[in-house]
């Protein structure tokens, strides 16, 4: 796709497009937008591994391909292992991996494929120290199989296997903090990012590229279909997730925490503002909302302390 020079100059993102239209993501899909950003950051010299997830479908059925980069489809549990193997082979074959002009090896997996079935392979990848980037696009449930809860589904959310209803059968466990599990591996670089803040996401992608060793980014990627939210609200919801400190943006770099958004000095917006745009939270009682708010407050305080002590 040709982009006029005049446009390139003013754009805050690279103009090159390596993610093509005609893909089969739902309207307003945060996953496809995220993958578009990743390919803008890394360009063609990239090998992407995608396990079973929405992106399997988004990337196109054979012989079609949405991506303009090498793509290997792999099994659900294996993202961390497959990118380890790709990286090892690149090194064996004499390629420079990662860094400014190196080949980028990217694992692009959903929250189920990361927080649940792929957690072991992720841990192995992080601990062994491969030069690759693992991106978990977090839409907070198994969306490709039809909206079932994952370890990353938040408290109070409706999913098809935590369906709400008269008996008030909802997700009663808080969101698994995958980023904390990742940081426990003391890798050089880990960060959270959001579809609503692409410049921030691209900055983090570039940092992940430069820093040797394994990098991990957890990207908040709204799913209108699974969240029962209007398709045009995807970015607004992602923004509110940050502003309410439900999904704060921060970086962990060589042992130091830095909060990007929201400002630690200000009171975050109430969680209610994030919840009300999404049908998946409609079964929550006032008490449920309060429970979630308490969790958000607690996690936010914890993060602020970490940034204070290890900043």
């Amino acid at each position: 796709m040709e982009i006029p020079e005049s446009v390139k100059k003013r754009l805050t993102l690279p103009a090159e497009e390596h993610f093509y239209a005609g893909h089969t993501a739902c309207q307003g899909c945060g996953a496809s937008l995220g993958l578009r950003y990743v390919l803008k950051a890394y360009g063609k010299k990239t090998i992407v591994a995608i396990p079973a997830c929405c992106s399997t479908i988004i990337a196109g059925a054979w012989p079609y391909n949405t991506l303009d980069a090498n793509l290997f489809h792999t099994a659900f549990a294996t993202t961390g292992a497959v990118i380890s193997g790709i990286e090892a082979a690149l090194k064996a074959l004499g390629y420079k991996v990662k860094g400014e002009d190196g080949v980028m090896v990217v694992g692009w997996a959903g929250d189920g494929g990361t927080a649940d079935i792929g957690l072991q392979a992720l841990s192995g990848f992080l601990e062994r120290g491969h030069d690759a980037v693992y991106i978990m696009y977090d839409n907070e449930a198994y969306m490709n199989t039809g909206i079932q809860r994952s370890g990353s589904t938040p408290y109070g959310a409706w999913t098809t296997n935590t369906p709400g209803g008269k008996r008030h059968f909802l997700e009663k466990r808080h969101k698994k903090k995958v980023i904390d599990i990742v940081i426990a591996h003391e890798i050089p670089y880990a960060a959270t990012a959001s579809d609503a803040y692409p410049e921030d996401f691209l900055r983090k992608l570039r940092k992940a590229q430069k820093i040797p060793g394994p990098s991990f980014i957890q990207l908040f990627a709204p799913c209108p279909t699974g969240w029962r939210s209007p398709t045009d609200k995807s970015i607004e919801i992602a923004r509110l997730a940050v502003q309410t400190a439900y999904f704060p943006l921060f970086e962990y770099e060589n042992g130091k925490y830095r909060i990007n958004m929201p400002s630690p000095k200000k009171e975050p917006k109430p969680i209610e503002e994030f919840l009300k745009l999404q049908g998946r939270f409609k079964y929550m009682t006032k008490e449920d909302v309060e429970t979630l708010q308490q969790w958000v407050n607690h996690e936010w305080e914890k993060l602020k302390k970490l940034a204070e002590v290890f900043g």
């Binding site: 005609g22 012989p63 079609y64």
Partner: peptide, 23 residues
């Protein structure tokens, strides 16, 4: 470039070929 020729391993050789799909 697209042909019906089957590629072993289900290799798709035309990057960005999703554009034929008018969504």
């Amino acid at each position: 470039e697209y042909s019906e020729k089957m590629t072993p391993g289900a290799v798709a050789r035309i990057p960005g070929s999703s554009v034929v799909n008018k969504t």
